[in-house]
Design a binder for these strands. Structure first.
Lengths: 123, 123
DNA sequence: TATATTATTGCAACAATGTCGCATTAATAT
DNA sequence: ATATTAATGCGACATTGTTGCAATAATATA
């Protein structure tokens, strides 16, 4: 499946770049200037994930949030914490690696770590 | 709202005690011997959470999992990691505190940390 | 440039999760 | 035995995310 460039993909990407936050589907949809079908947005986002451009987290509301991968995030474990602010409702990547001592026999493949609270902008 | 003891609550509690794992609503429903309405099960579980007997985590599937609180879990931060095994599909509490250095101005209130992989029973 | 290939899209339908209002039932206190 | 009100079942609902299918559009080829 070779990828094709489309206005839709570009638009979704632009929204993610411009926000700099992890965004849910409907937040993305709200920021889009063009009208893109819900299924299409999901397909685009899932494709971005497959291609390693975007990573997802599952927040406390059970929804998927999508954030651009940036290079500095490639920590040794490959996973970092996320911060979800209850006031400004933003979810952003923290520069904190997820590191833990698993009991013998356990193997970590993924990590979904979301810390909730108030961020520095919402004191 | 004073709590009342009911067979339903006892049954849900028994299932949680007996499994020793974090369980989703439908896993609990599947283990129940009596038939309890879905809404009721959720209400019972949410009540257990309010009362501090149970804590929830949101797993990668976006579902809520409910696990009994045990005393040893009261770590300094109050939060611990969870391990979700992709093979045996269990989610259990790890004896690992969630600890991190937040940038100045950030305040942690909750943490939802789920590590996915294979557990020691599924090598 | 015209055409063929096939990735992408929109639409509709669907499953699943979780919540809520309301009437009924049942647990507790009097 | 009775009153109070918490708990329950039912139905309805909103939301999230996926999938099948036909139509459209991006790319490669001639």
């Amino acid at each position: 499946m070779k990828r094709r460039n489309t206005p839709s993909k570009q638009a979704v990407l632009d929204v993610l770049i411009q926000s700099g936050q992890a965004m849910s589907h409907d937040a993305i949809e709200g920021q889009l200037e063009m009208d893109i079908n819900r299924a299409t947005i999901y397909r685009i986002l899932n494709q971005f994930c497959e291609d390693g451009m975007v990573h997802t987290i599952v927040a406390n509301d059970g929804k998927h949030y999508f954030a651009l991968c940036n290079n500095s995030e490639i920590a040794p474990s490959g996973f970092h914490f996320h911060f979800s602010c209850t006031k400004c409702k933003t979810i952003s990547c923290l520069d904190q690696e997820v590191q833990l001592n698993l009991p013998p026999g356990f193997v970590m493949e993924k990590a979904n770590c979301v810390v909730t609270g108030t961020c520095q902008n919402c004191v």
